[in-house]
């Protein structure tokens, strides 16, 4: 589904130039669950942001279902993003002023889905995420695990082809963390392609394949036998 070739990304400040991505090549197949791992500053978040069209590399190619995305104009990039991608962040990034329901509804609004359809889709996903009795609450009234469920629900409500997760369990204790990981696995099993950045080997063990980055290079790839069997 995703083919990345020779991505280059350099961050410039007044004094230093940091090479975040240095010629990355990568392929993600439809239905795959890929973990990206590596030490701090290896470029894994940058890679995820580039895949989510939130950041632009200097050079290289990024094809998604045979569409070259890096040459798109800003407006088309955001249109493509809201149609095909969902995001889950380490710090949830829910809007404090909106209720659970409204937070989840937001991507649908931006996709110009009509109100009755929106209500149906949100209720469906709320039920699936097991947060029905929370839909009138505000984010601060929920535990971290519940907040992340809401964030996952928001990422999925639009039925994206690809979910990008940036350390989804980083702010959670292990019990809640596991809950979220199981949720992601479940989604993956239902056919959603997931790319996740993580520090935790435990979390990575839930995925089909682990890509290791260092200093902007892919240094190794490992197929997770226990999970990838189902895929093949």
């Amino acid at each position: 589904m995703i083919t990345i070739e020779n991505l280059q990304k350099v961050y410039k400040t007044e004094e230093i130039e940091t090479t975040a991505l240095n010629g990355i090549n990568m392929h993600v197949a439809e239905g795959e669950f890929v973990s990206i791992m590596g030490p701090s500053g290896c470029g894994k978040s940058t890679l995820l942001n580039v895949m989510g069209l939130l950041d632009k590399p200097e050079s290289g190619s990024y094809r998604f279902l045979d569409t070259e995305l890096l040459t798109l104009r800003d407006r088309d990039r955001s249109a493509f993003r809201k149609k095909n991608m969902g995001f889950v962040f380490q710090n949830f990034n829910l809007i404090d002023e909106l209720t659970v329901f409204e937070n989840i509804e937001l991507p649908l609004i931006y996709n110009k889905v009509n109100a009755s359809e929106r209500k149906k889709l949100v209720n469906e996903i709320i039920e699936r995420m097991n947060i029905v009795n929370r839909n009138k609450h505000f984010p601060q009234q929920l535990s971290g695990g519940q907040q992340q469920r809401v964030a996952v629900a928001r990422a999925l409500v639009n039925r994206p082809k690809l979910v990008l997760a940036d350390e989804p369990t980083g702010n959670l204790d292990s019990a809640h963390g596991n809950e979220v990981m199981e949720l992601l696995c479940e989604l993956n099993e239902q056919g959603t392609t997931i790319v996740m950045v993580t520090h935790s080997a435990h979390d990575a063990s839930f995925s089909n394949r682990i890509v290791n980055l260092k200093d902007g290079h892919v240094i190794s790839e490992k197929i997770n036998k226990s999970r990838s069997a189902e895929l093949i």
């Binding site: 249109a79 993003r81 928001r154």
Partner: peptide, 13 residues
């Protein structure tokens, strides 16, 4: 800023 960023990621123009 943060709210705007979230909305942007979610597809706001």
């Amino acid at each position: 800023t943060r709210e705007l960023a979230i909305r942007k990621v979610l597809g706001a123009s």
